[in-house]
């Protein structure tokens, strides 16, 4: 039984508007670390953190096109995108490149 995963989440470029204007969130996921990838994280964010207009952040099972995802300051496209397995103390950054957030 692996311990729960704690993560540092950051939203910027206007994405923070959907999270009550708070940029940095420190969260602990109630999942087991060996079974938790970004896909799960997005669902969790949608259910727990997102305060309004979920369609402006999540579309389908991924983020809305135009929002960049960084895992430990590296492009998520290098890490397998949605299938990346989260590690304890990872930092995930979401940057909106959309006009006006």
């Amino acid at each position: 039984m692996a311990a729960s995963v704690s993560l540092q989440l950051e939203f910027s470029g206007g994405a923070e508007l959907l999270f009550g204007g708070v940029k940095k969130h420190h969260v602990t996921l109630p999942f087991q670390s060996d079974a938790c990838d970004i896909r799960h994280l997005l669902v969790w964010i949608k259910q727990n953190l997102l305060q309004e207009r979920p369609e402006l952040f999540i579309q389908g099972d991924s983020v809305r096109p135009g929002i960049l995802v960084l895992i430990n300051d590296a492009d998520w496209e290098l890490m397998g995108e949605l299938t990346y397995k989260l590690q304890d103390e990872d930092s995930i950054t979401f940057i909106s490149t959309l006009h006006g957030g």
């Binding site: 206007g14 508007l17 959907l18 490149t97």
Partner: peptide
């Protein structure tokens, strides 16, 4: 591209000030 720009700003700590546009949200 905006991707390059956003990564650069993030990596090299370029200060940005976010302002909502006319049509935010």
């Amino acid at each position: 591209s905006l991707k390059e720009i956003s990564f650069y700003n993030q990596m090299f700590l370029v200060p940005t000030v976010f302002s909502p546009a006319l049509n935010s949200k």
